[in-house]
Computed example of a mutant assay.
Amino acid sequence: MSGRDYSDYGSGTATRSGSGTGRVVTGVAWAVLLLGLWLWSREVTDVRHGMSAPTTGDVAAVGRPAQAELPPVVPPLTGARPNRLDIPAMGVQAPVVARGLDRDGAIEPPSYDQPGVVGWYARGTRPGAPGTALFVGHVDTETRPAVFYKLSALRIGEKIRVARSDGRIAEFTVDDVQVIDRDHFDARQAYGVRQSGRAELRLVTCGGTFDRTSRTYTANVVVSAYLSGTGP
């Protein structure tokens, strides 16, 4: 452990309690995703927008515009596996690896020695196809920020691009950014399809403060986006 303090790095907002560094996201930290995956299997759809619990620990979200002029929805694509995730506003160009569930039934994030890699839940929706595709990534490691460190600073209207195995680019537009306290986590709101028939995307990482007792963060950052463009 280096003891390096990078709390002011970029525009990330994962707040650490006390001194020292952040921690990699543990398997326990992702357990909150399990209920959402269970709800998916029950075909939860048409979640009302903006019904999440109060946000916490998200300094960068203060002043985020409540309304933004967004591009129209485009028809979904046929399914294809994701190869790369690009988020220009964050300076992210990350390879994507397929992930499943661990022995506890929680989704597996990328391995701890791959902080720059994004995990895609391969048993769910493929990005660009109808439904909600789920991507997860680490917020930090013991020594430095990781791929989703700046996730909560994304703004409504910014773009997320997924390079797919069929050679197509699926471009998504951010329409919601939430930091949801784990004690008030609403899996239906976080992971359910917002509008039937759309191709949607969720990016998830940890947020809030780091609890040294449980070795987990106190909240989840959940970014929602919808398919707004395609290209070769």
Rank of each mutant, 00 (worst) to 15 (best):
G3Y: 01
D5C: 10
D5F: 07
Y6T: 01
S7P: 08
D8T: 10
S11C: 12
G12Q: 12
A14V: 03
T15Y: 06
S17F: 13
G18T: 05
G20Y: 03
T21E: 11
T21C: 11
R23P: 02
G27L: 06
L33M: 14
R42S: 04
V47Y: 02
M51V: 10
P54N: 05
T55G: 15
T56E: 10
R64H: 10
P65A: 04
Q67M: 12
L70P: 08
A80C: 10
R81L: 14
R84Y: 00
L85G: 02
D86H: 13
D86W: 10
I87D: 06
M90D: 06
V92S: 05
A94C: 07
A94M: 07
P95W: 01
V96E: 02
R99I: 00
L101A: 10
G105M: 11
G105E: 07
A106K: 09
Q114H: 10
A122N: 12
P127D: 06
L134D: 03
H138N: 05
H138G: 04
E142L: 14
T143I: 04
P145Q: 05
Y149W: 12
S152V: 00
R155M: 11
I156Q: 13
I156N: 14
G157Q: 07
R161E: 07
R161Y: 00
I169S: 12
E171M: 13
V174Y: 02
D175T: 04
Q178P: 09
I180W: 01
D183S: 15
D183P: 08
A187T: 01
Q189D: 11
A190Q: 08
Y191A: 09
V193Q: 15
R194Y: 02
G197M: 09
E200D: 10
G207P: 03
G208N: 09
T209C: 06
R212D: 05
S214T: 11
Y217C: 05
T218L: 02
V222D: 02
V223M: 10
S224Y: 11
L227D: 02
S228W: 00
S228L: 08
P232S: 12
